[in-house]
């Protein structure tokens, strides 16, 4: 009995670590806001695959864009890097700060497509 409890615990631990280590966009539920020092709002709800499925987005670069010298590079994609690798907390030059980048990217598209959340609390649930 003790043995079985111990093995369950071990299994759970392995599963947890495994879950975290293999955690990728497939299971993504919120936008990671840990880079923000003291975030004023909750992380935005975002189910990556569900979103893309319902939005009919097949190409990564639609969101994971690449800009060079202020020009959007068509068909170039940056899905291997996280947003904060380019976008710092504060804006630099033409490049928006990280928060603005999220807002402009998500809300901007939602407004353009007339689909998806645009009000603060629709993403940042209390």
């Amino acid at each position: 009995m003790k043995k079985s409890i111990g093995s369950i615990l071990i299994l759970c631990t392995i599963f947890l670590f495994g879950w975290v280590s293999v955690h990728s966009q497939e299971e993504m539920e919120v936008v990671d806001n840990s880079v923000f020092d003291q975030p004023r709002r909750t992380s935005s709800l975002f189910m990556h695959d569900d979103h893309n499925e319902s939005a009919g987005i097949e190409e990564c670069h639609v969101c994971h864009h690449v800009y060079e010298d202020g020009e959007l590079l068509e068909d170039e994609s940056s899905e291997d890097s996280s947003c904060s690798e380019c976008h710092e907390i504060d804006a630099s030059g033409d490049m928006p700060g990280l928060m603005m980048a999220y807002h402009l990217n998500c809300k901007g598209c939602h407004l353009k497509e007339k689909k998806g959340p645009v009000l603060c609390g629709e993403c940042h649930h209390k």
């Binding site: 009000l119 603060c120 609390g121 629709e122 649930h125 209390k126």
Partner: peptide
């Protein structure tokens, strides 16, 4: 009400 997201959030925000 909108800030606290109480009641009809969308309505109160708009």
């Amino acid at each position: 009400l909108a800030y606290h997201q109480w009641f009809a959030y969308r309505f109160f925000t708009m």
